[in-house]
Design a protein around this nucleic acid. Sequence first.
DNA 1: CTTTTTCTAAACCGATAGGTTTAGACCATA
DNA 2: TATGGTCTAAACCTATCGGTTTAGAAAAAG
Lengths: 234, 234
Amino acid sequence: MRHEFKKKSKVLLIDDNYEHLVGIRELLNLEGTFDVVGIATNVTVGLNLIKKYSPDIVLLDMNMPDKDGLQGIIEIGKLESDTKVLALSGYDDADLIFRAMKIGAKGYVLKTMASAQLIYAIEEVLAGKIYLPLALSSRFFEYFQQSFREETSKQETDEENLLSYLTQREEEVLELLTQGITYKGVANKLFISETTVKTHVNNIFQKLQVNDRTQAVLYAINNGFLSKKVKLGV
Amino acid sequence: MRHEFKKKSKVLLIDDNYEHLVGIRELLNLEGTFDVVGIATNVTVGLNLIKKYSPDIVLLDMNMPDKDGLQGIIEIGKLESDTKVLALSGYDDADLIFRAMKIGAKGYVLKTMASAQLIYAIEEVLAGKIYLPLALSSRFFEYFQQSFREETSKQETDEENLLSYLTQREEEVLELLTQGITYKGVANKLFISETTVKTHVNNIFQKLQVNDRTQAVLYAINNGFLSKKVKLGV
DNA sequence: CTTTTTCTAAACCGATAGGTTTAGACCATA
DNA sequence: TATGGTCTAAACCTATCGGTTTAGAAAAAG
């Protein structure tokens, strides 16, 4: 796609390192297809510039002293603008990459990367895609999978999941308990008497080794009983 | 890395489509660097073959009639072997890709892809990397970000988060309630009287617009009060 | 064809929870 | 200084919860 009237993309730079800031601006200006509408050395100023210029993309440094980059991404997201965020960082910290992508960064590039790659990343993000260099992408996935390994290890590997001892009916009752419903309410929903509900609930308490409904609900939530509602489903 | 005594990698294929199965086996045999140690048309048989041959990698079809592929990945993971799973599918369903990667697949390739790309994917996974074709990787990230947008929208965007009306002391009390502690227990932990706790709790109920402790705990959990413990932290 | 499990239900009782009112002490802000 | 919010606390009462025992009917397992 190369035609003469192509509109330049508006770019904003936020980085506490002023030299780096100017360096990137020069680079992008030389490229000719970008219009650097502003630069800022902190997030607060950057946010104001975004409101003023509505850039297409913001290059946002992750490692800054005052407000950190993650908070910056969140606040840019709250603006409800179409501004895309490309995260910049000196380190390939898996956790940082994961968090940045989680809260809406459209890409993540290292400062050590070749300028051509930076340009490519910007273009990809501007085209609506998500850009992660292969090396970072790998780290991201490792971290991603590890997060869920820890999370699911309790539920699936666990052979002592007391929830598995519950009968079908008891599960139904527990399900209603986790909605904060009283004995009377459960009885009505299941078309059984209140005393029957109490019997089930007492059996549930014994099986889950808890003393009251709140603890039962907490056990249920922390052991995968309600995973679909509380977390991302498997 | 090319030396004559390179050991062939053991590959296992699981796919309910027998023709496809044989086709891939032929392809891999022709390649010369792979040793297809077994093929199976369902997960159950496949699991037994994995136990028997300890393959380096399993190509696992996601769309099968009996046990589906996701369950297959989980069960292969439970074997605690070093066998890696490369997911195969006819569809680039974002949700399916996300789930497969979440539970431990090392890669995901479409059946429609060129055979050279399949070979490349297998080699990458065998080398300990994670392989997602660019197109799927994009879909994955979109889905990934969308999942968390939904999850965080209630907590962060929400200006009607009733939790924000709680005083510090009330938050402390609620925190203890979410651990399933009684009035008496809370009183002891906070070094205040039981009646004081009851006063705080009643105020909490009114502010959160709920009727009992279980509902209060559920509200707290579903609105970010306990996010660090229940979900992945931001 | 027994035996066990599950689901149903009642009666009884004490403990806890929840609702309401009132009130003193402290602190900050108007 | 006065006003409002917070934290503390008590007294009172009712509703609900939780523990225990007992038991019949139906279904599943042996």
